[in-house]
Design a protein around this nucleic acid. Structure first.
Lengths: 139, 139
DNA sequence: CTAAACCCTATAAAGTCAATAGACTTTATA
DNA sequence: TATAAAGTCTATTGACTTTATAGGGTTTAG
């Protein structure tokens, strides 16, 4: 299951994607509308900013807005940012790869083979799931 | 990522599936061969027994062995037993269903739609991944 | 100048994960 | 029938992660 953090992030992103481009939206507005604890949301939005998905404007009249285009922001990236690897086994991840302790030959590991397939299918679907796609489906 | 518990369970099951039917295998043998802490393994095997996948024989000459046929034991069931739901959102699970707090209409939720697809694909693959299948792939 | 708004650090409560300890029960067999 | 082998049960522990909360610090519009 994805963490609340990831779920909150997705909700916030979808909310922002529905707003006019570049228009700063208050943290408090997202917090209230999406029922996310404000302080928790602050940290989430900051992470999304550090990752280049959002931008912010400080001071009065400030807020957050999408930096990337909604069709460039996909669920695979968001999930990886907050929850780490999508794969179910560390021997089938790319970024977080770790060899199984007693695996003598990965290429012939039946378990790995299964979970590699699962990972690939999942990543493929989640890459296609952009904010644009999500908003379109919700109609 | 799946828990160590689940990974240990899969390793133990594959190990047992390669042995002659009904032949009791010592916990200590599985523990050593698969490098699983013995006490931890005990609990895992007990859970698999309660679930009807394994059976055990007590006393001298005892041990664990597969009760179900290797082609009836699939990864979806094993993962659910130890890690709970396979779905990434609780609103797309069957057994562990929970409504999203502020979701007014599930049918038109784009997020849910995406994660439902992911779940269905994953479950389909994991159901096909039986012990027999895993052993066959490992050759 | 000042209030609005984002930014940063620290901390805490609760839960989960991985493992260990130690005693209890069952059973084959000498 | 004693005994050792082997599974069963309950409790506990330490480390880590999750989900927040508190309390300021910094920036900026007007």
């Amino acid at each position: 299951m994805i963490s609340k953090k990831t779920k909150y992030a997705i909700n916030a992103l979808v909310y922002l994607a529905k707003k006019p481009l570049q228009q700063p939206i208050l943290i408090s507005e997202i917090s209230e509308h999406e029922h996310i604890p404000q302080k928790f949301l602050e940290a989430i939005l900051l992470d999304l900013k550090k990752d280049g998905i959002l931008a912010s404007k400080k001071g009065k009249g400030g807020g957050y807005f999408l930096l990337k285009s909604p069709n460039e922001v996909n669920m695979a990236d968001v999930m990886r940012l907050f929850d780490g690897p999508i794969a179910l086994l560390s021997c089938v991840t790319y970024k977080y790869y770790q060899k199984c302790e007693e695996c003598t030959d990965e290429a012939s590991c039946g378990i790995r083979s299964v979970f590699l397939e699962v990972r690939n299918q999942t990543v493929e679907l989640l890459k296609k799931a952009t904010l644009t796609e999500i908003i379109n489906r919700g109609e």
